[in-house]
Design a protein around this nucleic acid. Structure first.
Lengths: 342, 342
DNA sequence: TGTTAGCACTCGAGCTAAACGAGTGCTAAC
DNA sequence: GTTAGCACTCGTTTAGCTCGAGTGCTAACA
């Protein structure tokens, strides 16, 4: 016995129904609601086969069947192969962004917000890791007589700044001169290269030694800080709308994972070579998320930096819709961030 | 009949017990667990009086009593009057901050984190509104041939930046010259004053008209953006540990309020002239938080900017502990941000 | 050989009634 | 003024029950 076309159709109907209702699906439901010309008894036989094949689970004898992880996997793979994503809401999404895309953090926050409200799940937007970023400009701005602000602009338009102490003999012009020099030397290099260059040239500008190490240190810090990509998570409370989380314990473990973003980052940072990655239940690798699915896509930022967007929801997720939204959002972010800052 | 010392002692015992257990308190419990030399019957009479006075509620006839909002209010006022806050954990708090206080946003994030983990409630940290902030420096940094980055440094060390388009005839030196000029003109003025100045002086520098309006616009945007103070909220899922939120509906409405931070900001931005503000249940003014208490304190940032820190938890909150933690954290933030950036 | 009607069986959900017990208010004695 | 005693209340828990959705199997049918 193996999977044939009819079994697949029936399985699909079961998944569709379960995604919609969250109630274990019985043979009669399929026979009536979906136009298979088959009686419930026949469906029953097929369902029994599907269970044996590992595509369906039965919570208990007198309940209907529930799709297994394996079933969702098949379903999603089929969806991805067909590639028919509803991208109709693209323009709707864009409206959200028109006037507001100022700060990087605002953008990712908004994007996550939009993902969440369009899907009713939890929206995720992650900035690229900064490891590959190249410096475009480095500027020292006087803040007080003993402190200056270091502003670092990278090729993807991301700006980081921090305060450092400086000798009191520096005025604005002196700082500017240093800025120019540093910029000339460092433009086009990655953060880690920049540190090396600064370390190497210390002999050159011995007199400013203290300050140079200060800045170098800062670049290191920034690099380290940026290596942990920023992550916006919006709509966590949406999850409480779904019956599978009416159990408070489940809800709590889910929310805890999302709050301590480390685990999430761990997953999101895994390289993905596909346009979309769908992790179903246990595939997430996080025990607390074993009843959740995580769908992610990438957007491009500048030359070769990839950010990640995604949606977390119950395993019985509306995968088609989510993929459509993610696809549209990915395009928009790529355009928006690419065009605007380039 | 009115409140006498004994009634007050009994009330305090009831509140203490209820805060600890979340179970309606019976007369027998008080008589046994707390060293009043009184029998349950006497306590019962007193409790009856306290109920009549509005300090106790009775969920139903055969249950114990529960403190009313009025009771908590009395309790907290007493606590504040005594002013005996446990500040023993001050040094413990400071350890969390030693090496990390780089970016403002990191600091408030960490602070909220610490508040949450020390109290097991939800921690809030809000930056001051920027309305009163004065410009200290304004710098244009070239990003590409047609775009520059405007960096605004204010007197409290807060930095905002945004990209603007510029004419292609600007090189780094030209931008620097403009920066100097702008800084000279605008230093010491508030953001809104700065806009007026720029508007007024447009005639002066007519040739750069387009750019000036661009910057002016930006300052307006920044001002508007900053008017909504940033708010970090950490530990929302802690709330699920408390039995009063084992009802999913309650939990959801709570989490929703915290996620859409607007309402929260609305409360937090209310001026408070006391060191601490305690809003109990309905006093928060937010229906969804009628079973929560919000305790806030202020920290000082720079000359006359006040930020707010706070904790949200169930009305039966460990007020003493929370006040102690907030007090310590307020001091630390004031020192940390005051010293570091000043 | 595949499909379907019929039927006995399973088992969780939901309802009801009874037992339980924590807590109260009241009364009478101290 | 305090306390022991007691009847009473009422939410919670438990046990038993029915109900019904859904199944698997068998036998008849095309």
């Amino acid at each position: 016995m193996s999977m044939d076309a009819r079994k697949f159709r029936i399985l699909q109907a079961i998944i569709d129904d379960y995604i919609l209702t969250a109630i274990p699906v019985g043979s009669r439901t399929i026979s009536k609601k979906y136009e298979t010309g088959l009686s419930s008894a026949t469906i029953r036989n097929e369902m029994s086969d599907l269970e044996e094949l590992g595509y369906l689970d039965q919570p208990h004898v007198s309940a209907g069947r529930v799709p297994s992880t394996k079933a969702y996997r098949l379903y999603v793979d089929q969806l991805l192969r067909e590639g028919k994503l509803q991208t109709g809401d693209m323009s709707g999404i864009r409206d959200h962004f028109l006037s507001r895309a100022r700060q990087m953090e605002d953008v990712i926050g908004h994007a996550a917000q939009v993902l969440s409200s369009l899907t009713h799940y939890t929206g995720l937007v992650m900035t690229p890791k900064a490891g590959e970023m190249k410096i475009r400009n480095l500027q020292l701005v006087p803040v007080s007589s003993t402190a200056a602000l270091v502003v670092i602009v990278t090729d993807s338009g991301i700006v980081r700044d921090a305060v450092i102490r400086i000798g009191s003999d520096m005025d604005a012009d002196a700082l500017y001169a240093i800025s120019r020099m540093l910029t000339e030397n460092l433009t086009g290099h990655t953060l880690s290269e920049a540190r090396q260059i600064m370390a190497a040239s210390t002999g050159n500008i011995q007199r400013r030694n203290q300050m140079v190490t200060s800045i170098s240190e800062l670049i290191g810090e920034v690099e380290q800080q940026q290596t942990k990509a920023k992550l916006a998570v919006v709509g966590t409370s949406n999850i409480l709308n779904f019956p599978e989380y009416s159990d408070v314990e489940k809800a709590k473990s889910f929310l805890s994972v999302l709050e301590g973003k480390e685990k999430l980052l761990g997953i999101l940072e895994q390289k993905q070579d596909m346009a979309f990655t769908v992790r179903i239940g246990p595939e997430t690798g996080i025990p607390e998320l074993k009843d959740c699915s995580l769908v992610t896509a990438t957007y491009r930022l500048g030359d070769n930096n990839e950010g990640t967007i995604g949606v977390i929801g119950p395993t019985r997720m509306q995968y088609g819709h989510v993929l459509g939204v993610l696809s549209a959002m990915g395009d928009i972010l790529t355009q928006l961030l690419g065009d605007d800052k380039e």
